[in-house]
Write a protein that binds this DNA or RNA. Structure first.
Lengths: 404, 404
DNA sequence: CTGATTTGATGAAGGTCCTAAATTTAAGAC
DNA sequence: GTCTTAAATTTAGGACCTTCATCAAATCAG
């Protein structure tokens, strides 16, 4: 006779989740340590572990006494999370570049891949193909089978709602950036995909492994050609009704800002304008560069060498950035504002000025302004975290690999 | 021998919570309906209900077949949530007025009370006494014993963090507004108190019983003398690191706004300024009023009668309010922005203009702008909801009244 | 080799919850 | 009035999970 397993399972799953969570976060754990950590009894712990081993999530280590641990007594059974039983893929599907990172289930990077987006890639089909290609390349490079991919997360430069859709009408660019990626990857490989906004994923990355760790609330400013922001409050990502939280059109209304252009764009524009005004007279090392290729990193580097024109550019842009950060600090009351993206590596001189002036505008003083340390791959890191979270949440409903 | 009841309880409590939640939301429920709703078996449902009756949360109704229900079969046992077994108190501890609402556990209002704050009440001790007094008066008026108060929530015009504290230094006003209310009420009456920002509670109220129902994300603008905002995203209140979300100093930076003065203040100031400019010439019915007592409601009423000066004031303030609402709409991506507080009753002409112009600034068009329908008591309503949530969350650890 | 110590394994017991069958209660048919 | 039918409750039995108590195993110190 068939039984309704709802309640038996409920309790068993709760116990299994307790144990799995501890194993996921720790390296190797003995039975006794699990008893301590979970509050379950020894019998239950081992029973649950046996089940998790059976299901593939956990493996038992050879219980040989490890060298540096000369203790009395019977050697404990040692369990470890089977971090290699599957992989996740984090994709940054940017406008000009698509990159993917593959990690194991603990987030240890196994491989990366990057593809440029060529001018003729401006169709949904091409972008879908490139995303798929970047993911597959990284998976192959990691030595993993496509079937071992337990989740994929993709960051796109468009507002994304809770269901992974971009529901703003009449914006061809956004539509192109988020063209039903989830369905495509499911149809082609059976992968579960989570789609999210790139700045949101950057914020997730900072909260996970960057400067946002341990803060109640922080804002990550993805500041390349255009500003985009991700906000984490109480450990949760803000979304709004349609995923429009980081879209910064309100900057049009902020005095002295007037647009949502990002740091890279602002620096470049201001440098070119000032160079134009010099009009032949020498006054800056930047004049030696080709105006068509001058970029933010050049200007910021020159400012570090005290090139007067570059310093003036930095001061101007800093004044603007200060206002942007001030609105964030006042609106979201974060502990930190983190500037991430490609400019993060070079924008320290800018941030120094922002720090100097910020408290003039912000009431709870002491908002920290930091440059991201996660490099140009922030978005894929955040995507990896999203994918990991998804796997972890649904772990007990997933059968990862060939079970015993 | 003592047994560790942790696991047995874990499952039992989960079942009890399922049943209690359904009873809390419904009027009367039969056993079979509970089986349907919870997925538990009949045996479990009745067992849990018996336990809840024992604990005081539920009562069993006389199972007499109710008149209009001529059904065959054995009459079902009918259970109902014991909404009268305790009360909650919601307090609005405003700068000039302290009011309290007492409701039963379903949020049905039983009594209200209001106390003015006199000029000599400007000390923490006096405010604490007034808050206590307002609460006690309403409790007594509701015919409830002070011991039956299961939770109190208090809204204050100051930023409040997750622990109910105002951690901004050097602000005597805020400190005066939030002077350890929780401790005071616990010491005096053993009450559990939750402290929160008044605009936050207004947002909670709108989400519960106002125009915010059913929306993923909405902003409630508490707009009296100063703006304060509460933001609900995905059903959760935003707080920030120190409870500063909703403190609107960033408006200083918004072009054409420049301060956080509220609607009432703006309307009054602008009206007085324009009256001054008239300088004797007649041109407005508002000139008949005493300039010292003219207030926003007067001006808005005059605008409704097409008084030219009042119309001009309204247009000016609407332009400003449009920018404020636009920043919200762009920053938080809400479905609705609700204007609440005392001015809500009269500000409809203002909002009509805001609606007309808003889409010029905001990208996902169609953000609704509404006046609150909850009246001047929004904050106490939200406070009641907070208190109810607290009781509900901790219901199974509370023994409400004299158990059987 | 023996004792101490730590951990694993095993079986009994308590608790929760489900299924199935028996029982209670009321309405309608004859 | 009695019987049938329908809906719900009650009771009994069993499956499952977890804990507890006890025993067995493994290791180290001496």
């Amino acid at each position: 006779m068939e039984r309704n397993p709802v309640s038996s399972r409920r309790l068993r799953d709760a116990s299994a989740r307790l144990v799995l969570d501890h194993l996921w976060d720790a390296d190797e754990v003995t039975g006794s340590a699990l008893i301590e950590a979970t509050g379950l009894s020894r019998a239950t712990v081992h029973d649950v572990c046996d089940e998790l081993i059976e299901r593939g999530w956990v493996r038992e280590l050879a219980s040989l006494r490890t060298g540096g641990d000369p203790r009395k007594g019977r050697p404990a059974r040692r369990y470890a999370f089977a971090a290699g039983v599957g992989v996740v893929v984090g994709v940054d599907a940017g406008q000009h570049r698509i990159s993917a990172t593959v990690t194991d289930l603990r987030g240890v990077t196994l491989a990366r891949s990057t593809l440029p987006v060529a001018p003729h890639d401006g169709t949904s089909a091409r972008r879908l193909a490139l995303i798929e290609q970047a993911a597959l390349a990284a998976v192959a490079d990691a030595g993993a089978a496509p079937g071992s991919v337990l989740a994929v997360a993709v960051g796109v430069p468009a507002p994304v709602d809770r269901d992974g859709r971009t529901s703003f009408q009449d914006n061809a660019f956004w539509e192109l950036m988020n063209p039903g990626i989830g369905d495509h990857l499911r149809d082609r490989h059976g992968w579960t995909a989570v789609i999210d906004n790139d700045a949101n994923l950057a914020a997730v990355a900072e909260h996970w492994r960057g400067h946002g760790r341990g803060s109640l609330c922080h804002v990550t400013l993805l500041a390349g050609e255009r500003f985009g922001a991700g906000v984490v409050d109480d450990g949760r990502l803000l979304r709004g009704a349609h995923g429009g939280v980081g879209e910064m059109r309100y900057l049009d209304l902020v005095e002295g800002v007037g647009s949502a252009d990002g740091i890279a764009a602002l620096v470049r524009q201001d440098a070119l304008a000032q160079l134009g005004r010099l009009d032949g007279r020498t006054g800056s090392s930047l004049q030696e560069l080709d105006p068509a290729t001058v970029d933010a990193a050049d200007v910021l580097a020159a400012a570090r060498d005290e090139d007067p024109l570059a310093v003036s550019v930095v001061e101007h842009v800093a004044g603007l950035l200060t206002r942007v950060v001030a609105t964030f600090a006042s609106i979201y009351d974060p502990e930190r504002v983190i500037v991430a993206g490609a400019v993060a590596a070079s924008c320290e001189p800018l941030l120094a000025l922002v720090r100097r002036d910020l408290d003039r505008y912000v009431d709870p003083p002491g908002v920290e302004v930091l440059a991201s340390a996660l490099g140009a791959d922030v978005v894929t890191v955040g995507a990896v975290k999203r994918a990991l979270d998804h796997v972890r949440e649904h772990a007990l409903q997933i059968t990862p690999a060939a079970p015993h």
